[in-house]
Design a protein around this nucleic acid. Structure first.
Lengths: 123, 123
DNA sequence: CGATCCTATACCCATATGGGAATGCGTCAA
DNA sequence: TTGACGCATTCCCATATGGGTATAGGATCG
């Protein structure tokens, strides 16, 4: 199975460095493929492949403009990533509520106690 | 090359659904491998493999507790993910500054103009 | 020291993935 | 319509990855 397809999961789509770079580049405005290719420093076919992935997960849109195909950002899909990672915010935020930490400690102690009981009964 | 190793890039490490699930489970307190295995619904070896990846990128820590090895969360590494995705916040925040949008429009128009000039000169 | 429990590894396999080169295709200019 | 340009696809290949099963390791208990 080797992981969910990159084309169906935003987390997987942004797991590739070049794709994250593309998204950052597009933040300043739409760009045609060759422009992206040059800025990324990778050949055009590779760029197109990454763009395809991003397009399929809905992180970019494209439209023809003269002879070239211009890509634009549609970062709404990144909101889920932001919110998910935000769910761990208190773990790196030093000023998080002390009471919260206290509750966590209690939880852990209780879980450890439960595990000890399990061992006593099952072991 | 097939992408940066999952063991060296947080974005890649959390690209796997089961690993994200592990992190969420550990948010409520430390857990031994078998517990995680049961809650994830996958066999122990697979769980250990995922834990290894998370451990190598520094998202979890482990310590022995009696006969079992207990894993705990160290989500500080997720901060970079949160900040990176936060860099796109204005794209999904409807109340973002209209002036900002205006500036973006100007930028795009200018870039398109430049591209047109390039074509006229190079083409 | 031997038995047992909990995990981590080692293997093997099917598959997803990214890179590079070549090529197909639609669009625009002449 | 022909030729050039800009991209998307297609092939082929090396490799990373996850799953399943079997097995090695380390720690605890008797």
């Amino acid at each position: 199975m080797a992981r969910a397809a990159t084309t169906s999961d935003v987390f997987n789509a942004i797991a590739e460095p070049k794709r994250r770079e593309i998204l950052m580049l597009l933040r300043d405005g739409d760009l045609p493929v060759m422009d992206l290719s040059l800025r990324l420093g990778i050949p055009q076919p590779g760029t197109s492949k990454h763009l395809r992935v991003l397009r399929e997960v809905g992180l970019v849109r494209d439209h023809r403009e003269g002879k070239q195909r211009v890509y634009g950002l549609d970062a709404r899909g990144l909101r889920s990533v932001h919110e998910w990672s935000g769910g761990f915010e208190r773990f790196w935020n030093e000023s998080f509520d002390r009471l919260d930490a206290y509750v966590q400690d209690l939880k852990q102690q209780q879980q450890q106690t439960e595990r000890r009981h399990d061992e006593e009964q099952d072991g």
